[in-house]
Design a protein around this nucleic acid. Sequence first.
RNA 1: GCUGAGAUAGCUCAGUUGGUAGAGCACUGCCUUGAAAAGGCAGGUGUCCCCAGUUCAAGUCUGGGUCUCAGCA
Length: 320
Amino acid sequence: MNSKDEIYIILGPTASGKESAAFTIAPQIGGEIISVDSMKIYKTLDIGTAKATSQMQQEVPHHCLDMIEPTFSEFSVGEYVQAADSAITDIISRGKKPLLSGGTALYYKGILEGIFESPPKDLALREELEEYAKNNGNEALHERLVKLDPVSAQKYHPNDLRRVVRALEVITLTGEPVSANRNQWSGFHSDEGYFQGELRYKFRMVMLDWERPVLYKRIENRVDMMLEKGLLKEAEYVYNNREHFASTPLQAVGYKEFFPFFAGEEDLETAVDTLKMNSRHLAKSQCTWFRKFPCQRIALTEDMSKDSIVTSISEILTYQ
RNA sequence: GCUGAGAUAGCUCAGUUGGUAGAGCACUGCCUUGAAAAGGCAGGUGUCCCCAGUUCAAGUCUGGGUCUCAGCA
């Protein structure tokens, strides 16, 4: 891949305005947008995930949106990375530029650093392992990992069931400890700085870095805007179909918060407050991720206009 | 106005027989390799409503204020 085949990335926490900036910049650089978002892959979840409208999608091609039905439970990072890879290849082959934007850090890690070859999840085995932890305690399950894969056991806290279970799952299915194969991520986590590992693409990455209080204010405003656009109706649809939905879309911030309201256990105002709080939590943990990303930060304050933000981003992305 | 209850962390509250405070949530930081908007770890937080008194020592006991809530007028 030569240098003109770089991919462009606009990062930022939820409500930072990254998607809107990407939409404005895409035509200027001959770009097509690739969504890097674990929730926008679901069809019908539109308002709550702040998905680009169909009007916007007509003006600028978008990729990795609406990939699956919310009832589909088998989706994983691996599949996302495959889809993103082929979108990138496709866009470049047509002489356009891939402009990635979204808030799911794990997906960026997968695209840039790779995901190790491993068996997909085995739901039955996971259930068995979780059952074991339930009956014998998290420590006991962790002990099993200590024996089979001490390196991973060292890395994960006994209460971090997700990871302890996954590590046991992989070694059970393959006989190989995950710790032997999880070596793709040296790039972002090296003490030496960034770019230590072999990355899969050349890229330019900018991050929208709002002052925290301003970001929180933006989140509140955006939730109110979503409500005006009909979020409640969309949430009610999710609520009514919750029995059939996979667990991931049910975890999306923007829907589950209204469930107690629909069940008549809570008033609307409380639900909205919870939604705002969960959005803040989401933003905060995204910030923790992105802090380690090899990106150029654009420090933003409340008085910054959208135009000047877009100008700064495109200056960095197109700088020769 | 009377009677009762209360006032302790940003919020909801706990605080044993007096030894200057604590839990959940919030907030802050971190971890994160096929469920990631998920999951996990760690941390700080205080005129204990005010004033006086008793005491070596008061969130805790006594007196007086102030405010809040409930019931009764």
